Amino acid sequence: YETDHQDYCEVCQQGGEIILCDTCPRAYHLVCLDPELDRAPEGKWSCPHCEKE
């Protein structure tokens, strides 16, 4: 299903190369994640907010 994702990072509120959560509309820079990621994850990815739930 399609979600309207943010076009900015949930953490720093800036645009650029962001990865999109497959569960919610949030988006993140790899370096803004904690722990940060070296590269975009393959397959489905859930953001830290969704992982907690």
Rank of each mutant, 00 (worst) to 15 (best):
Y1I: 15
Y1A: 10
Y1S: 05
Y1C: 15
Y1H: 08
Y1R: 04
Y1W: 15
E2L: 15
E2S: 14
E2F: 15
T3I: 11
T3W: 14
T3Q: 10
D4S: 08
D4T: 13
H5I: 14
H5C: 15
H5K: 15
Q6S: 03
D7H: 11
D7P: 14
Y8M: 14
Y8F: 13
C9W: 01
C9Y: 01
C9G: 02
C9Q: 02
E10D: 14
E10Q: 13
E10S: 13
E10A: 10
V11H: 15
V11F: 14
V11E: 15
C12T: 01
C12F: 00
Q13D: 04
Q13Y: 11
Q14N: 12
Q14R: 12
Q14H: 07
G15A: 15
G15M: 13
G15S: 06
G15K: 13
G15T: 13
G16D: 10
G16E: 13
G16I: 13
E17L: 05
E17M: 14
E17N: 13
E17A: 10
E17D: 10
I18D: 10
I18Y: 14
I18Q: 09
I18L: 11
I19L: 13
I19Y: 13
I19F: 05
I19R: 09
I19D: 05
I19E: 13
I19M: 15
I19S: 07
C21S: 02
C21R: 00
C21G: 02
D22G: 07
D22N: 12
D22R: 13
D22A: 04
T23S: 12
T23R: 07
T23M: 12
C24P: 00
C24L: 02
P25W: 08
P25M: 06
P25K: 03
R26K: 13
R26G: 10
R26S: 13
A27M: 06
Y28Q: 03
Y28W: 14
Y28K: 02
H29R: 01
L30C: 13
L30W: 13
L30P: 12
L30Q: 07
V31A: 14
V31W: 05
C32Q: 01
C32R: 00
C32W: 02
L33P: 03
L33S: 05
L33C: 13
L33V: 07
D34H: 03
D34R: 06
D34C: 04
D34E: 11
E36L: 09
L37W: 05
D38A: 11
D38H: 13
R39A: 13
R39I: 14
R39E: 10
R39T: 11
A40V: 10
A40D: 12
A40M: 12
A40I: 15
P41Y: 08
P41A: 09
E42M: 06
E42S: 10
E42G: 12
E42N: 14
E42C: 12
G43M: 11
K44S: 13
K44R: 12
K44C: 10
K44G: 13
W45N: 12
W45P: 02
W45A: 11
W45M: 05
S46P: 04
S46H: 02
S46I: 13
S46E: 09
S46M: 07
C47E: 00
C47G: 01
C47Y: 00
C47Q: 01
P48G: 11
P48H: 02
P48F: 02
P48M: 10
P48Q: 10
P48I: 03
H49Q: 11
H49F: 06
H49E: 10
C50P: 03
C50L: 03
C50D: 07
C50H: 05
E51F: 06
K52F: 04
K52Q: 04
K52C: 05
K52E: 05
E53A: 05
E53C: 02
E53R: 05
E53Y: 01
